[in-house]
């Protein structure tokens, strides 16, 4: 008696496609390690500790941000009146 053909859903087929692909990698393994290390450095070190979005961090509304930029561009930077 043969086993009935099972219809495999698309998400499962996609999952298996990527799983098999990753398993069969050779050089790709090193590259993925390199990518993950790089992403860690970028997002968890650089972004978190060194590159805050200043306007988002220091002001809570768009109005306040606009006022801060206005102050900077019109009073701090602009040529003397």
């Amino acid at each position: 008696m043969t086993k009935p053909n099972r219809i495999v859903s698309l998400p499962v087929r996609i999952y298996r496609f990527y799983r098999d692909g990753f398993r069969s990698m050779t050089v790709g393994r090193y590259l993925w390690v390199l990518i993950l290390v790089k992403l860690f450095i970028l997002f968890f070190i650089f972004k978190l500790f060194f590159f805050p979005d200043l306007l988002k961090r220091d002001y809570s509304t768009d109005q306040e941000r606009a006022a801060a930029v206005r102050m900077h561009l019109m009073e701090d930077q602009s040529s003397p009146r």
Binding site: G28, L31, W32, L34, I35, K38, L39, L42, F46, K47, F50, F51, P52, D53, L54, L55, K56, R65, A66, V69, H72, L73
Partner: peptide, 25 residues
């Protein structure tokens, strides 16, 4: 591709931190 991927993200970090007036403007 693997080595180059996400290197451009750093530029976007810089927009938010170093060039925030520009980013808003």
């Amino acid at each position: 591709f693997a080595i180059g991927v996400a290197t451009g993200i750093i530029l976007e970090f810089e927009f938010g931190t170093n060039w925030s007036n520009y980013s808003w403007f």
